[in-house]
Design a binder for these strands. Structure first.
Lengths: 340, 340
DNA sequence: CTGAAAGCGCTTACAG
DNA sequence: CTGAAAGCGCTTACAG
């Protein structure tokens, strides 16, 4: 493998190690000819800098931590990871992942952060929802003094926070239903307490307002942990005399429950009931008929999160005016025109 | 954060840096009193060794790479990661993950491995199925001279290879059906070319043999990439005069297709058709009725893989006689007694 | 059982 | 625009 050191390159190029270092780090103040000679020597010797030596000297690890809650169908987390890895590859960083148990994530946080910051010397953190809603976790993170980027978090006061345009995505979903002739449109919220749930509900309301449709509280149901079940919330919507003809759910997982309850009630999708989900969750791919849903550019969020974080690490204060990434309506077969 | 160095500890304990180093690394040949003095100093100073200094000196990175194919519902991969992280935490290592695109994974491999081995100095690799079936990937890996542990691979000649007892798991599934009175039992294989598909088919055959049931080729169907679709394979089983009364599928994803085709054919599960899957895939959780399936200890595999790999890295040749981890039958509602 | 010296391969701080 | 020296914080190789 790679044996050559910066000293070998320096000798081959007839310069000092410091000059090679300058070339490696794209520092200014090297004559073009010198730079070329160094570059040639690097290529000839197949030289790759020793990252561990650089780590020791610069006191940076070139490692960024990704913190997320681990649950079985967490496609969102994997997409974030994929995007973040792409950015890391480009910028010379690596990713250290850290899944937390879904019960009591804050319980392990102190030990874990100490481990990551002091032992592995992580330079910064990306926090994936819903973990970024956990105040204890965020507080512990901020105490380390390490840069943080949060994704889709309600509280964007203290650190960088990124998200796609979820409100607009929800509007897209509801407008799609309105355009199909529906006006009795329900909303089933699975994500109470998450930024996503809040934004998607806002989008629902804004779309109704835009078309002059009044919100009917009987057609809005929420699953609140410890109070009811998602099934109960869904039955509340569907088991009433004057029930909605279409339902927009805060995520695809809730849409799956709507499918099941609808089937029990002999409501045929999309003829008796149109359903739109949110997320384009691959776990919903075996739903039949295929679910109309909203797709967000999640990997792009991960990419941007890593890029901003690294920028923050290097330049200490990065300013970013990132446009909200647009969401997209994916029309499949769970939505149809209002029938008489 | 952590400021104290090994020199500070040495001074505080009244010994040399080397002796502190000995204590840190649990090397023999330190008097108990000396060791205690060092331990006390370490605690008093809240000392944490600088991993990057150790990395530079020992030419190890204490990083292990996990290579897997990235597809949307890869719960198997996340479970492997979780298990591997547990082992790494215990043994002082960290994980570097590397998802490959599902199309042409070997295409990126050379660049990527060079990146991981030469830049990040990864000490070893865990390869997750089905990536470990890719000869080009394995060849490139072996060329790096880095230790490898493969999980559930067909080819276990060249490197360490771990798997759970998949054959027995499949037997469990088929015996469950036989015990319910079924003898016309079909097998739908989605995983042709994977070790898992092969082993699960073997288990199917062995269970039939054990109960003196002859295998009927009409009741075995395989999805082969480029030849047919999974739907077609499934229809072959279900659209025949003398069709099986129960189907064992090589994974839960195929079971979902059986559900859909069965519903189209007005076959009610479990009354007209019993279905057993394999994997306990959380993506199958919104199947109705809930799917009977086989659950493997996947996180345990990940834990063992990391442990063995690190043992190999440290001691260079580890011998492990690991018992195959047992699979488990999870009975839900997709299987029922044979009805007349 | 313990320690003094050297060095891993870079970058920092400084000098010219 | 370029370089010689020092040092990041450990462990290796050796001596006693």
């Amino acid at each position: 493998m790679s044996k050559a050191t910066i000293g070998d390159v320096a000798k081959a190029a007839g310069v000092s190690k410091k000059t090679v270092s300058r070339v490696l780090n794209n520092e200014p103040g090297v004559r073009k000819e010198t730079r070329d000679a160094v570059t040639t020597a690097i290529q000839k010797l197949d030289y790759i800098p020793n990252l561990n030596a650089r780590r020791l000297r610069t006191k940076q690890s070139y490692l960024i931590g990704v913190l997320y809650i681990d649950y079985p169908t967490n496609f969102y987390g994997s997409l974030i990871l994929n995007g973040a890895i792409k950015a890391c590859d480009k910028l010379g960083y690596d990713l250290l992942i850290r899944p937390f148990a879904s019960e009591n994530p804050a319980g392990e946080i102190t030990t874990t952060l100490r481990h990551m910051v002091e032992r592995s010397n992580v330079d910064g953190f990306i926090v994936v929802p819903p973990l970024c809603e956990d105040q204890a976790v965020i507080a512990a993170l901020e105490e380390t003094g390490t840069p943080i980027v949060k994704i889709a978090s309600l509280d964007d006061t203290s650190s960088y926070c990124l998200h796609s345009d979820e409100v607009e995505g929800a509007q897209l979903a509801v407008e799609h239903l309105i355009n199909l002739g529906h006006s009795k449109i329900g909303f089933l919220n699975y994500l109470v307490g998450h930024a996503a749930g809040k934004w998607r509900y806002e989008g629902y309301q804004q779309a109704l307002t835009k078309y002059g449709i009044e919100e009917n509280p009987d057609w809005v149901a929420q699953f609140v942990y410890g109070e009811n079940t998602l099934e109960q919330a869904c039955r509340k919507l569907l088991c009433q005399e004057n029930r909605p003809t279409a339902i927009f759910t805060a995520n695809d997982a809730s849409a799956a429950v709507v499918y099941r309850i609808a089937s029990q009630l002999k409501l045929r999708i999309p003829y008796d009931l149109s359903v739109v989900g949110f997320d384009d969750d691959p776990a919903a791919l075996n739903l039949w008929p295929p679910l109309t849903t909203i797709k967000q550019p999640v990997a792009e969020l991960g990419y941007n999160a890593a890029t901003i974080l690294i920028e923050q690490i290097i330049r200490h204060q990065a300013k970013w005016e990132l446009p909200l990434s647009p969401s997209e309506l994916v029309v499949r077969n769970s939505t149809g025109p209002l029938l008489e």
